[in-house]
Amino acid sequence: MAIAYRQHIDDDTEFALWRIEEEADDLYKQLQLDDEEKAYVEKLSNGKRHLHWLGTRVLLRKMLHTDEYIDCKVDAHGKPYLVNLPYHISFSHSFDYAAVMISKTHKVGIDIEQIKQKVERIAGKFLRPDEMAFIDDAHKIEQLYVCWCAKEAIYKCNGEKEVSFADNIFLDPFSFNTRGELSARLHKNNINLDYVVSYMQYEDYMIGYVKGQM
């Protein structure tokens, strides 16, 4: 399967989606992995988690236009980074899709989620009452997913653990469209960061993506 969707955000930043239709072995053959990565893959059960790990790495290779080995590590906070290439990266996956965002100049964060009714049951765990107040009943489920994806993208962009979606990431009111932007802030202790998060609905998935500071 080729890249299903690709969007250039600026000269140095883009994201892409890969629809995972291959078997794990087909994805594995497209990768070059070191011994540590091979051992990690072998520990993954043959399910979606396995396919998602392989799919994001295949997509990253396609976006970087390389057949060479890519040294991709994960830091102490769980944020992926490239050891020898000048890109900030972010990974996400949901059901049949893998998503990757890259930038030479900015920290980035991306999240993709399949839209399901269950988000309504947990909305109070990641939104505050003032944020719940601007949710439009006509597009309630979709807008809740925008909020979740926006906060998740900011969390990944910031790249540090111990950040609460409800207590540390704040969304300004916005009206839902199938594609749009919203303003947000991350505030924790002495950290105060402003973000403009972009989002789009793709098939029955919601995607949120953001550029951070340089």
Rank of each mutant, 00 (worst) to 15 (best):
K48G: 02
L64G: 05
R57D: 15
L59T: 03
G55L: 05
V74Y: 07
H187K: 15
D11F: 03
I122T: 14
L182D: 06
S183T: 13
E120W: 00
K118L: 08
L186W: 01
R6V: 01
I112N: 11
K29C: 06
V210G: 06
E120F: 00
D172T: 09
E68A: 09
F15L: 13
A184K: 01
K107A: 07
S103D: 05
I102W: 03
N46E: 08
P129W: 04
W53V: 07
R128M: 00
N168R: 02
G55K: 06
V74A: 12
N84P: 05
Y97F: 13
D35G: 07
G208R: 10
I169E: 13
L193Y: 12
K161F: 00
K140F: 13
I89A: 03
E152L: 09
D96T: 07
H187N: 10
K38T: 08
V146D: 10
C149R: 08
M200Q: 15
S103E: 03
R128Q: 01
N84Y: 12
A2W: 02
C149Y: 04
A16R: 05
G124A: 02
G180K: 11
I89C: 09
T178A: 06
D35E: 15
Y87R: 03
R128F: 05
K79F: 00
K29Q: 14
G124D: 12
F174I: 14
